[in-house]
Lab assay of single mutants.
Amino acid sequence: TFYNFIMGFQNDNTPFGILAEHVSEDKAFPRLEERHQVIRAYVMSNYTDHQLIETTNRAISLYMANL
């Protein structure tokens, strides 16, 4: 899942690491979701930090390219 992918960046001092920290603390994050459209919609609806949203979009693109 995307959640498992992004958790691989925990403790990294990178934008993906920052995203992983936010996702791990977000109890409502769709952890079992595999459809990138649902993940993107969730982030757009629940996150207000523009940098975090952009990082999510980049992470989703990388995740999709590696499926």
Rank of each mutant, 00 (worst) to 15 (best):
R31A: 06
I6Q: 01
V23L: 12
Q10N: 08
Y63C: 04
R31C: 06
I18Q: 13
I53V: 09
I18F: 11
I53D: 03
Q10C: 12
A41K: 10
N57G: 07
G17R: 07
T48I: 10
I39S: 00
V23Q: 03
E25T: 14
N66R: 05
Y63G: 00
L62T: 05
L19T: 00
T56G: 06
R40I: 15
F29V: 01
L19I: 04
S45Y: 09
F5T: 00
R31S: 05
R31V: 08
R31K: 09
M7L: 10
L67Q: 14
Y47R: 01
N66P: 06
M44S: 08
N11M: 08
A20R: 06
F5K: 00
H36C: 12
T56K: 01
Y63P: 00
H50T: 12
T1N: 09
A28L: 13
Q10V: 14
P15G: 07
V43L: 07
S61A: 14
E25I: 10
E33P: 03
V43W: 02
Q10H: 13
H50Y: 12
L62Y: 08
L52P: 01
Y47D: 01
E34M: 15
T55D: 04
A65Y: 10
L19A: 02
N57L: 15
P30M: 04
Q37D: 15
D12V: 08
E25D: 10
A41Q: 12
L67N: 12
T56F: 15
Y47E: 00
N11D: 09
I39P: 00
A20H: 03
R40N: 06
T14F: 02
N66E: 13
Q37P: 06
L67I: 13
G17F: 04
F16T: 01
R35K: 12
S61F: 11
A28Q: 13
T48D: 09
A41M: 11
T14R: 02
A65S: 11
N4I: 10
L52S: 02
E33A: 07
N13D: 14
H36E: 13
L19Y: 03
Q10A: 14
N13R: 11
H36V: 14
I60E: 00
Y47G: 02
I18N: 08
H22P: 00
A28C: 12
I18W: 12
M44Q: 11
A41C: 10
R31D: 03
L19S: 01
